[in-house]
Every structure is written in C-alpha cells, then in structure tokens.
Amino acid sequence: MNKRERNNLTSKSISILRFPLTIGVVFIHFSLSKGLNIHGTFYGINNPDWFFFVTNFISEVLARLCVPSFFFISGFLFFNRDNFNKKIYFQKLNTRMRSLFIPFILWNIIAAAFILCKSTIPLVSNYYPPIDINFSFVRLLNTFLCNSNNSGILVYPSDFPPPMDFCPINIPLWYVRELMIMVLLSPLVYWIIKKEGRYAIIIIGFIWYTTPFLLPESSYFPMFIQALFFFSWGAFYNISKIDFIHQFRKGKWLFFTLYPIIAITDTLTKEFTYSICIHTSGLLFGVPFVFTLTSYLIENWEIRPRQIFIDSCFFIYAFHSLFMNDAAKFAFKTLHIPENVPFIMLVFYLSVPIITIGLCISIYVILRSISPPFCKILTGIRMSN
C-alpha cells in the first residue's frame, strides 16, 4: 500500500467512524446498569446477570471507547498542516469559534429551554420536577460550564438527582467544552510534542492512567486529563507525520487478542474497585482496536454509510439527551413494560437509543430542508452539499 492509499484509508476510517461513535455516545446515556430511575424508584434491577452483562458490555465498556476516539480524531485533524505557527493558530481559533463555540452556546440555551418546558408541560412534568430560576452572572457561567450541585440558573428540588458533576446543562457538551480548551492549549501541545516526541505522550498517558486511583470521578481533573491525553495522542501522529492506521495495524494481533479479553473482564468485574484499572487499560488498547478494525472493514467489505448519517452526527450528539431519557420513562410507564422480563427489557434497552437516533436524523433532515442556514449554525457547518 503506497502513501496515497494509506492517507485515503485513514481519511475514510475517520469519516466512517463518526456515525458509529455517535451511536455509542447515545448508548452511554441510556445505560440500565443500575435500572431505570423514575422519581427515585429503580425499575428492572432484579433481572438476571446475563441482562446486566449485555447492557454493561454495550453502554459501560464498548461505548466508552467513543469519547476517547473522538478526542483522538480531533487532535489528529487539528494539526493537519505541514507546520503550525501563530497565523495558523489564530485561523484555527476563528474556525473553531464557528464550529465549536457558537453551537456550544446555542445548544446549551436550547437545553435550558427544554428543561423549563419539561417542568411546566402537564403531561411531561409527571416525569420531571418543578424547576426554580435563580439568575446571576456566576450562575449563568456555571450553566454553560459546570452545571453541578444546583450551581446554574435552573435550580432542581433537593430530592431530585442533581445534574452530572462538572458538565454544562446540556450534559454531552462537556466534550465540546474540553475540546475548546484543547484548542486553546494547542500551541503548548504542539511545542511539547515537537520537543519530546513520543515521550510526551507516554508521560501524559501515565498521568491519565493513574488519575482514577488518585482522584475521585467526581472531580474535574479526570475529564481534563482524558481530553489532553487522547487529543495529544492523535496530534502526535500528524505532527510527527506518522500514519496512525498503518502504525496500529502493525500491532493488530495484539489489539485483536487483548482488547476483547479486557472488555469481557471489564464487564464481569464492574462491581469491584479494581475494575477501574481494567477499564482504563481497555481504553488504551480499545482505541487502536477500533481504528484497526474499521480499516480492515473498509478494505474487505467496502463499507460506506450514507452521507446523511455523517452529516447528522453532531445534531444527534447535541440533541439526543434533551428528550431520550424522559421519553423512555414515559414509554415505560405508558406501555406497562414488564420490568422483570429480561428479554422485553433488553428489547426496550436496545430500542430507545435506536429510535432516538432515528428521530434525531428525521428532525435534522426537516430542519435542514426548512432552514439550511440555521441548521449550519447549530451543527458548526457540518453539512455536505
């Protein structure tokens, strides 16, 4: 395989992976590992072990590869020029303002509007608590950056589970927040990699790997160091002019052998404290596994998703969490789904994300046909002609 074919394979792998990785993110946000929580009551927790093995394997193991893979791709694509200087840096800041910052602000505003609507509409409010508004400049910033412990402008009741720690009000957008931080730090990332090469990645990777043992998940640093490591790891290959697909394929038997073993072990040991070590190792081997497997599927199966799936990825990512869990709770209670019939619960678990993705794509297509300019703004101009 010549250099041009390798570059083409890398480009195709990145493009094709966007949609499956987005599907994985949706499944992360519908994990039934602790049951379905409706007003503090957990449904489906008495199902057999095999049910939780399947749901944990999908949502808590395989899907957890998606965000690190996105950071890796972002780091690789960010340094796609032959050199990196002050002029290029400010050009990239300008483009990321349009592709990251503006959608980040808009989608968080949309999330706040959705939450207010859900707490006031009679039918929906049965599954959502009344929300108070406490406005201040600091709370406004927290709403966009760190909407935890009722620190944002929307205040939840004391008996309602608080939003996830260190996430904006539109929870999945923590990834965009960290990516914007990586963009701001990109000159430092570039300088360190140019100066220290692969040793810089090893050191950052060591800090990332040991962080879960030193700091609780409820602290912010684990989010930051995960973003920094995988962003820098991807950046390393482009800065060093190394084809990462070709590099990963050299160790294909290692990844194809070890990762499935680690993934199964991770799933089986979730209840133990040492599981975090297994899980972190799984991410380290899983990211190369994902790219290597994708490259072989492209070569041997010539997979090529429809462009609409690729175009709608950001819309799915930003929109799905605003309604998916509430719609699932409504469907669960309305359809009287038997919580202790594992096969029916499994169908329910698989159906909710799939239906959510289908609805997001449908809404995206309608919005794009009605108002292409607004759709471009919402998605950071992630559209094909």
Rank of each mutant, 00 (worst) to 15 (best):
M182V: 04
L179R: 00
H279N: 14
T22V: 02
I239P: 00
P288D: 02
I201E: 03
I102E: 13
G44T: 10
I192E: 07
F84E: 00
I344N: 09
T294Y: 00
F51E: 02
L346F: 04
T120L: 11
E5M: 13
S158M: 11
T294I: 05
I45E: 13
A327L: 09
S312I: 00
I264H: 05
S136Q: 11
F101C: 07
T273N: 13
T55K: 01
G234V: 01
Y259S: 03
L346D: 04
R6A: 13
S219Y: 12
M223P: 01
I88E: 12
C277D: 15
M182T: 02
T22H: 05
A111H: 00
L36W: 05
M1W: 11
I264T: 12
C167N: 08
G40Y: 15
L106T: 08
F285Y: 04
I105P: 09
L62C: 07
Y43W: 12
W50E: 15
Q91N: 04
D49M: 08
S11D: 12
F104M: 06
F104T: 02
I308C: 04
E299C: 08
P163L: 09
I337Y: 11
V155W: 01
F272C: 10
T143S: 13
T41P: 06
F236N: 06
F114S: 15
E339L: 02
Y220P: 14
F57H: 14
P129H: 12
Y128M: 10
N56C: 07
F71D: 00
I121S: 10
T210V: 15
L17Q: 02
F160K: 15
